[in-house]
Design a binder for these strands. Structure first.
Length: 452
DNA sequence: TGAAATGTTGGGGCG
DNA sequence: ACGCCCCAACATTTC
């Protein structure tokens, strides 16, 4: 048996239900845990960077200080470390995004030059992307049949948490984590576990009824823990199956959301280019706006000054918290693409820059769903009306008033339509930057032209 | 996991 | 009692 193997953490910042960790333990007498920080990720003090650092700080504690942090390019850092500790194997959870796959191939090649191996075990998904295929061996392009086949496919039970992990300690220098205030950031495996169990006990039964209400705290808020792998979806699914309400309608609805995550990872696996390119090429002809005038509109969208209350509330929450309710993601995405006629990747990039749970597969395919260019996308002509959506899903205006203080003097649903009230603009709320009815018609006209 | 436009139905007011 | 109109409520079609 080898003396030391390396466990290279990426989207799997946990110790439970971690097949690659078990493989690393099996392969050697000691395991060196490593995380490589890309300096480009830490240029600014945005919620996303701080969320990652908080998770790493928790992992460092959970490994009782064994975790080695290194800044730099993994293609150089990992082979160098492997050589230094004499590791023949570097263990990872299989990465499935285009960037991750390219990076891992490069690292694998660099390791091989030195006679070392990159060993991938498991992935961040319950069913590995690429595994679910239809009768003729091709990937699914529509969610519903995919979901059916995904359920049929089955998945492994959660892996055991190792009783004792023989970490390699004090042999290798670690870069310090950047000095950033991490107070109040919920992160790490224990916090993820706690949040998940609280939702399972208290939140799941109402999920069906309340999940679309951004004014309520009715979702599991598990997106960031899942993104960083502080909890594995396999664990989540196993817990639901074992729970008394595991077969309820609410539980089924929740599982479907997990399957959407798996579906989009699968779509990206089969179409790496779909991260930034339209899945439906026939809509690539759609004309989008650009130029200085459009830049000003996009800035207003980014900063939450569009004059549409529910849109501004969502965009301001994104900047402040790095998180937005999914309903708001759809509404604000629809506004950028259909009301401002801006190319969807502009919005997708903004979301990735600021969401603590920003995931290339879910985020970018979600954007394509709204823009109408994706696999299983909503038809292009589905245009969200920000006022109707606001009144329907934030019926008392609570969510809007929470994030748009200029509208706090308007009671109830009045906060969704300041233009209908004499005192609507008493606190200097911005006037609508475009007319929704007009822009909706403009979008439909462009769609009609592109289709012909 | 849309919304608006258009069509249909049926109750009530009224002569 | 009947026909007519209005219109809300709901359903269907269209974008």
């Amino acid at each position: 048996m080898m003396a030391t193997s390396i466990l290279w953490f990426r989207r799997d910042l946990r110790l439970s239900d971690h097949p690659a960790l078990l493989a690393a333990i099996d392969a050697a007498t000691h395991v060196l845990p490593v995380f490589v920080l890309d300096p480009r990720l830490l240029d600014t003090d945005i919620p996303r960077s701080r969320r990652l650092l908080a998770s790493l700080a928790a992992l460092q504690k959970d490994t009782r200080g064994a975790l080695v942090i290194r800044r730099g390019d993994p293609v150089e850092v990992i082979p160098r470390l492997a050589k230094q500790v004499g590791a023949e194997q570097v263990h990872v959870s299989r990465e499935t995004t285009p960037y991750g796959r390219r990076r891992d191939e490069a690292v694998e090649k660099a390791l091989a030059e030195d006679g070392r191996e990159l060993v991938a075990t498991g992935s961040p998904y319950a069913v590995g992307p690429g595994r679910v295929l239809n009768g003729s061996g091709s990937p699914y392009k529509v969610f519903t049949p995919f979901a059916r086949a995904w359920h049929q496919h089955g998945r492994p039970a959660p892996a055991d948490r190792p009783k004792r992990i023989p970490w390699l300690r004090d042999e290798v220098r670690s870069d310090p984590l950047p000095k950033v205030d991490l107070d109040g950031i919920e992160a790490g495996e224990a916090a993820a576990r706690k949040r998940w169990e609280a939702f399972l006990e208290d939140g799941l039964t109402a999920y069906d009824r309340e999940r679309d209400r951004p004014d309520l705290d009715s979702t599991s808020r598990l997106s960031a823990p899942l993104k960083y792998g502080e909890i594995h979806p396999r664990t989540v699914l196993a817990d639901i199956a074992a729970h008394s309400s595991g077969r309820s309608k609410a539980a089924t609805t929740y599982v479907t959301e997990i399957v959407w995550r798996e579906f989009y990872a699968d779509v990206l696996w089969h179409n790496p280019a779909s991260a930034w390119h339209d899945l439906r090429p026939e809509l690539a002809k759609l004309p989008y706006d650009s130029g200085p005038q459009t830049d000003r509109l996009v800035d207003a969208w980014r900063e939450g000054r569009t004059g549409y209350p529910v849109v501004d509330a969502g965009m301001r929450q994104l900047l402040a918290e790095g998180w937005m309710h999914n309903r708001l993601r759809m509404i604000t995405a629809s506004f950028l693409t259909k009301d401002l006629h801006v190319w969807w990747p502009v919005g997708a990039q903004h979301f990735l820059d600021h969401l603590v749970d920003g995931d290339i597969a879910s985020n970018n395919h979600g954007w394509q769903w709204v823009a109408g260019t994706g696999t299983d996308a909503s038809p292009y002509f589905r245009v969200f009306n920000p006022v109707t959506q606001g009144r329907k899903f934030d019926p008392d205006g609570e969510y809007v008033r929470r994030w748009v203080p200029e509208l706090r003097h308007l009671a109830g649903a009045a906060a969704h339509e300041p233009w209908k009230h004499d005192n609507g603009y008493d606190n200097d709320y911005v006037q609508p930057i475009v007319d929704h009815d007009e822009e909706r018609k403009e979008s439909l006209a462009r769609y009609e032209r592109a289709r012909r």
